[in-house]
């Protein structure tokens, strides 16, 4: 019961503090920009009489690019909105009034986590749906495996959320934010090293990328999502700049699931045992 009460208040907080609305407003601005660009491109394609295959591939690339931007926005949204909820309330003493109620601490933490999961799910669904709707309207193109792509992007966000929560039970807001962003940055760079390693056929560079994904699997989930969503031709030719020269395996997805479970368990354990 406590879990749902805390989840509800956390979700409402995101809405009442205008976090969710501001993020959605910024997201809409992004979608409008994206749609405008795509619209001009579609008009020029028609003017130049480009072949349908080429037109389709370029539209697919635009779609992947749009989703890549959504992914980056989702990463930032996840860390920035959730980083203060535990450490900030511990520092200000707000948590004391909640933690002395007859609700076990794990329920307080899981409630907050679920509230953020609900908010981020809404955000990612609207943004991924929006990008796909726009490319469909403008160019009759949608992601190849939309649902699995969405779920992988969602999972990336949940991994980052759980890691941010775990950090926030140990450190201050600022330190937790720096650590979570830094860890994702490491995965991000690792992902590019892996891609370039694959292009230049440097197995050791690919290994560095894989190690980075083991340390933080967030970026690997995006690359798997891009692989699921972009055109089969781009996957086969391996020419897209946004993905998938070295595709993370399904095992990596399971690993990410295990990773987020452990991060969440650590957060619960630490929050239940620490002084507030």
């Amino acid at each position: 019961m406590g879990v749902w009460i805390m989840a509800g208040v956390t979700f409402r907080e995101a809405a009442r503090k205008k976090m969710l609305w501001m993020a959605l407003a910024a997201g809409c601005a992004f979608l409008i920009l994206f749609g405008t660009g795509l619209n001009f491109q579609a008009k020029d394609f028609a003017k130049h009489g480009m072949s349908p295959i080429m037109r389709r591939e370029i539209s697919f690339t635009m779609l992947t690019m749009g989703l890549y931007a959504v992914d980056l926005l989702a990463v930032l949204m996840t860390i920035l909105t959730s980083v203060d909820t535990l450490s900030g309330e511990i520092a200000s003493g707000t948590i004391q009034a909640v933690a002395t109620k007859p609700v076990p601490r794990w329920q307080v933490l899981m409630g907050k986590w679920l509230g953020f999961v609900a908010m981020l799910t809404t955000y990612i669904a609207i943004m991924v749906g929006g990008v796909n709707a726009i490319t469909y309207l403008m160019a009759r193109v949608t992601a190849r495996h939309l649902l699995s792509g969405f779920l992988l992007m969602w999972m990336e966000s949940v991994v980052l959320l759980s890691v941010t929560f775990a950090f926030a039970t140990y450190f201050s807001t600022l330190t937790s934010g720096i650590l979570a962003l830094g860890l994702h940055g490491l995965a991000f760079i690792g992902g590019w090293i892996e891609q370039l390693g694959a292009i230049t056929q440097t197995p050791r560079a690919v290994t560095v990328g894989v190690i980075a994904s083991v340390i933080m699997p967030s970026e690997a989930l995006w690359r798997r999502a891009a692989f699921e969503m972009q055109s089969p031709l781009a996957n086969a030719m391996r020419v897209s700049p946004f993905s998938t020269l070295s595709v993370p395996s399904i095992a990596m997805v399971f690993y990410a699931g295990l990773y987020l479970t452990i991060a969440l368990a650590l957060a619960v354990r630490r929050f239940s045992q620490r002084d507030l």
Binding site: V9, G93, T100, P102, P104
Partner: peptide, 18 residues
């Protein structure tokens, strides 16, 4: 203890809330 807390009221020194 969680059960005992159901019969307890607490005003912290600096009460803050959402």
């Amino acid at each position: 203890d969680v059960k005992a807390r159901s019969k307890v009221g607490f005003l912290p020194e600096h009460f803050r809330f959402y």
